[in-house]
């Protein structure tokens, strides 16, 4: 098999804050093949957006990233600043959450495209810029008559489509879509998701789709990674994970979704942990309904769901329940703990 489009191993990202370093992403590994859509789900603050930005090298000043990151076999972290910058847009693109504020309000749509294409292809002619851009806009459903319009003349959904077109016009092999539909209504959401699916299929683009919406994952993604407190707790084929979730957090997350048959809302008690001073052992143990004594002591490694080494194609999970053989006999009893207070839950 050829090199995956994105190969990320043991990625760690810290943010410097006045209260101390925050471990936003803590030893995360995954890879994405061409044409594949990997969904990344998790609560707010679980580190999913940080991963997306980290892949593009868009982390804010004061943050540190470490690990192994390869794009089509090329080590991205070994590149110097300038080389890495050149990859941005051309090879690795990003679509953001808030389409309303992502376009420069003083620039016409045409100027956005011209600037983007000229940055990467300095010699390209005006006619060529217009042709390439209009082709992409056409595919995405923006009529050529709007070429000279300003961003405020478009609706949110149209602006998101323009943002997508702006990413696609460079034909990147990898796109991070960071909650691309969160700010949009459901009908527009469906359109955008369809566009992203088509993109992966037609152009063999690898896609990292970050969302907290499980419905989108089920609809659009080939594989899914579930994040909790800076770690991937479960990763595998989307259908597999949804039909047979392994990690208690994934199970709780799926129980929290709302369907027509839902009577009474389910929520996971407690709040995501403080990443400056994360809990010992498994980060989820304070909220986990199935926690064992061992869970508060040691951190579970990532294994496939039968406890063996992770391999391509398996669903991998970081939970002691799947690796019971490695848990000392006397530490398998339920974890004793104080009640989660109401204050914690808020």
């Amino acid at each position: 098999m050829s090199d995956p489009t994105i190969y990320a191993q043991h990625i760690r990202i810290w943010y410097g804050t006045p209260a101390g370093p925050v471990r936003a992403v803590d030893d995360v590994s995954f890879s994405i093949q061409n044409g594949e859509i990997l969904g990344l789900v998790g609560e707010s603050g679980s580190g999913k957006s940080t991963i997306g930005r980290g892949l593009l090298g868009l982390l804010p000043p004061g943050s540190v990233m470490d690990g192994e990151l390869a794009f089509k076999g090329e080590d991205l972290l070994a590149l110097d600043q300038k080389e890495r910058f050149k990859r941005r847009g051309r090879d690795l693109a990003m679509i953001f959450q808030e389409p309303l504020t992502r376009l420069n309000p003083l620039m016409r749509v045409s100027e956005h495209f011209t600037e983007t294409l000229r940055t990467h292809f300095p010699k390209i002619s005006d006619a060529e810029v217009e042709k390439r851009s209009l082709d992409v806009l056409q595919v995405i459903g923006i009529p050529p008559s709007r070429w000279k319009a300003y961003p405020h003349e478009f609706s949110g959904g149209m602006r998101q489509r323009i943002m997508i077109a702006l990413a696609l016009v460079l034909r990147p092999a990898f796109v991070v879509a960071d909650e691309p539909t969160t700010a949009l209504d459901v009908l527009v959401e469906a359109q955008i998701i369809r566009i992203l699916r088509d993109l992966a299929e037609q152009f063999d683009t690898a896609l990292l789709l970050i969302t907290h919406n499980l419905g989108i994952i089920a609809e659009a993604c080939d594989r899914v990674a579930v994040m909790y407190a800076g770690k991937i707790v479960e990763i595998g084929d989307a259908r597999d994970v949804f039909s047979d979730p392994q990690h208690p957090y994934t199970q709780e997350l799926l129980r929290s979704t709302i369907t027509l048959t839902t009577d009474g809302l389910h929520s996971i008690p407690g709040a995501p942990p403080d990443l400056i001073d994360p809990p010992s052992g498994c980060h989820f143990h304070p909220r986990c309904p199935k926690a064992m004594a061992h869970c508060a002591v040691a951190e579970p490694p990532v294994r496939n769901k039968r406890g063996g080494k992770p391999e391509p194609g398996t669903t991998d999970v970081a939970c002691w329940i799947n690796q019971l053989a490695d848990v000392p006999e006397d530490a398998r009893g339920p974890l004793e703990r104080g009640e989660i207070s109401v204050a914690d839950e808020a």
Partner: peptide, 29 residues
Amino acid sequence: QSDYVEAARARGIHESRVVRKHAFRNALV
């Protein structure tokens, strides 16, 4: 710090141009 400046950076626009064309010009309004 605006969203469109980050988006421009994500498209690989050179930092000097991002500051001049996206940040500075908009700051003058």
